[in-house]
Write a protein that binds this DNA or RNA. Structure first.
Length: 630
RNA sequence: GGGCUCGUGGUGUAGCGGCCUAACAUGCCAGCCUGUCACGCUGGAGAUCGCCGGUUCGAAUCCGGUCGAGCCCGCCA
């Protein structure tokens, strides 16, 4: 302890270590003549007998080592044994490369290191896939099993570095804006709403469980009551639901909350933060529109069929009612939909008029798989004339009105969905629009098209449980002008019904979408106890149940809760979009498979009997096995 | 819970009822080579085709089941 510091703080912070003075990415022509030590992995070895080239790699780059058998026979003898992915420490002299042997594709290509000694720090087996050919395809399960090797490869390495920059930029922006970063517990209390919880049995309180947080929602609200004012966290979240390319059982959110704010104020900060982060992390990616478009939820559904519209291209949904006119359309399918109070909408897909029968059949399959009964189409030929299998029902006049209404140009294919349920129409056309937008190359992959979607409905009716279900967050506030709608037709606040005006209430809820992905969502919360109780009653919670589940936060609200609101953003999705990936596993160091297993660590695994015993648990089999026994 | 796709030397693919004693590329091993950088040349080893069962005179190839991976629906504020 009393010894003097061996090295200066500058040196301690530098990348130099006892094994290496320089990294494999930093030597330049100006370093010629230096005697250096360098360490890394063998990227590739080229043996000329009298001359052996070794490309030494670390995460900073690649440096060519030359071993000359005549000049350094001992080093050459070691180099003979060297194989790919061995870890070496080289001592040698930096030398400019001979004329004509400079490698312009390498940042360090002007120099090489003439080895004076080669030491093998670690030997390596032949890896199960190519590390030195980053573009070579490898089955993903193999990459997951040997994730530590995959991370050596440039593409995944670069994405993890970009993610690190993303998180750094997020932290910088928040600190600049006076936010405090606070960690919240991972062992929490189960909450009833939303996704299935991951459960952790308690040993100290046998028979009870913790739940892993689906998000730190309640805690951040408590921090607002605590006066923390501006809080943020890069928070790990857990949801025990089935997986997708953009969904992992554990994932990372930027979670933030602000006090004394309105919807506008939160969106203003978040938008400015997003812009700053984007310009820092991906300066070459243009942001399509500033300020971000703010789209009312109903408009988003009407125009794009989605609450997370991809605004990089148009192809908006068009209501065909005006074109089809009053009375019978002449087409039974449409007439029935109209009679049932449904909707008939369309999109005009540019350049698809010449689609073959089988291509159109494929689109019909696409929409049927998503709940539509069928898909009608009208093609607009190059000469502007419209052709359609349903022309014989509608008549050419109506077909031409459809073309006008859809603003279809020659070469376009108008795709029409009709359904009594207009959610189906919007959803199906929205998905079709997104799919075709990508297929037809209408979406510029470089552009970042952020937008806000706001004023979501507060509730959706849950027919099974006969209650209103919060569409996003049970604490979301209602628009002041809609507060009066939080009542029941029965007059009993604990007896909600489908006909309650609450179904029309709009929430102070906003989502931010990026290129067709939901990037984040948040709201201004209810901070008044009385209103919260009314909202929870509509959601089917008795006073008693409410206290059992949310007692802590309800009590906290009795001690002076400031108006507050915030947002949570998916870091994994953001990183994936920044690195042009459609799968968040590609921006996670150690992701799980679609069945939730970690192929590297072989998790989950069976616990020891002792562990069960400690917890007072016994495994009684999975539910389907149980029923199968009877 | 359901639908679809995939599973062939280390890796990526081809083969899709007999000509397969399984092909190609790359990797791997050995030898040669002093200016390569996806080095080159010569030679060699290496898979019974995820697993189980069935159909057939005959199965990598067809069928059923199963395991694993992926995509999607359901599910997921």
């Amino acid at each position: 302890m009393s010894e003097p510091r061996p090295i200066s703080p500058e040196a301690a912070f530098s990348l130099a270590t006892p094994y290496r003075e320089v990294t494999c990415g930093e030597l330049r022509a100006g370093d010629a003549g230096r005697e250096i030590r360098i360490a890394g992995w063998v990227h590739r070895r080229r043996d000329y007998g009298g001359l052996i080239f070794i490309d030494l790699r670390d995460r900073y780059g690649l440096t060519q080592i030359v071993v000359n058998r005549a000049e350094a026979p001992a080093s050459a003898a070691v180099a003979d044994k060297v194989r790919n992915e061995f870890v070496l420490e080289i001592r040698g002299k930096v030398a400019p490369r001979l004329a004509g042997t400079v490698n312009t594709r390498l940042e360090t290509g002007e120099i090489e290191v003439q080895a004076k000694s080669v030491e093998i720090l670690s030997e390596a087996q032949t890896p199960p896939f190519y590390i030195n050919e980053p573009d070579a395809p490898v089955e993903e399960s193999l990459r997951l099993k040997y994730r530590y090797l995959d991370i050596r490869r440039k593409p995944l390495l670069d994405r993890l570095l970009l993610r690190s920059e993303l998180v750094r930029a997020i932290r910088d922006a928040h600190h600049k804006a006076g936010f405090v970063e606070i960690e919240t517990p991972i062992l929490l209390k189960s909450t009833p709403e939303g996704a299935r919880d991951f459960i952790v049995p308690s040993r100290l309180q046998p028979g009870t469980v913790y739940a892993l947080p689906q998000s730190p929602q309640q805690l951040k609200q408590l921090l607002m009551v605590a006066g923390m004012d501006r809080y943020f966290q890069i928070a790990r979240c857990f949801r025990d639901e089935d997986l997708r390319g953009d969904r992992q059982p554990e994932f990372t959110q930027l979670d933030l909350e602000m006090s004394f704010v309105t919807e506008e104020r939160v969106m203003d900060f978040v938008e400015a933060m997003i812009v700053e982060v984007s310009r820092t992390v991906v300066p070459d990616r243009p942001i399509q529109q500033l300020p971000f478009p703010r789209i009312d939820y109903h408009d988003a559904i009407e125009r794009f069929g989605s609450d997370k519209p991809d605004l990089r291209f148009g192809m908006e949904l068009v209501d065909l009612a005006p074109a089809l006119g009053e009375g019978s359309t002449g087409f039974r399918v449409f007439d029935e939909v109209v009679a049932a109070g449904g909707r008939i909408k369309a999109i005009a897909a540019p350049g698809m008029a010449e689609s073959s029968r089988s291509q159109i059949d494929e689109l019909v399959e696409f929409v049927r798989g998503r709940g539509a009964k069928g898909l009608a189409h009208v093609s607009v030929a190059a000469d502007g004339t419209a052709h359609s299998p349903i022309a014989k029902f509608l008549g050419q006049e109506r077909i031409e009105a459809v073309v006008r209404e859809a603003a279809a140009k020659p070469g376009d294919l108008i795709l029409i969905v009709a359904d009594a349920n207009h959610e189906v129409v919007a959803d199906v056309l929205g998905r079709l629009r997104q799919e075709l937008g990508l297929r037809l190359g209408l979406a510029d992959p470089d552009v970042l098209a952020y937008c806000w979607v706001f004023h979501f409905p507060m509730y959706q009716w849950d027919q099974e449980k006969t209650r209103w279900d919060a569409t996003h967050n049970p604490f979301s506030g209602v628009l002041p002008e809609d507060e009066k709608l939080l009542v029941t037709v029965s007059g009993d606040p604990y007896a909600p019904s489908r006909l309650d005006p609450a179904g029309r209430a709009r929430a102070m809820q906003y989502d931010v979408a990026l290129n067709g992905w939901e990037l984040g969502g948040g709201s201004v919360r209810i901070h008044k106890r009385e209103l919260l109780e009314r909202s929870f009653a509509l959601q089917g919670y008795s006073l008693e149940k409410m206290h059992e589940l949310f007692g802590g936060i309800l009590e906290a609200f009795d001690y002076g809760a400031p108006p507050h609101g915030g947002i949570a953003m998916g870091i994994d999705r953001w990183a994936a979009l920044f690195s042009q990936q459609t799968n968040i596993r590609e921006v996670m160091a150690f992701p799980k498979t679609q069945s939730g297993t970690d192929l590297m660590l072989e998790a989950p695994s069976q616990p020891e009997q002792e562990q069960y015993a400690d917890l007072g648990l016994r495994f009684v089999g999975i539910p389907s096995q149980q029923t199968g026994d009877h």
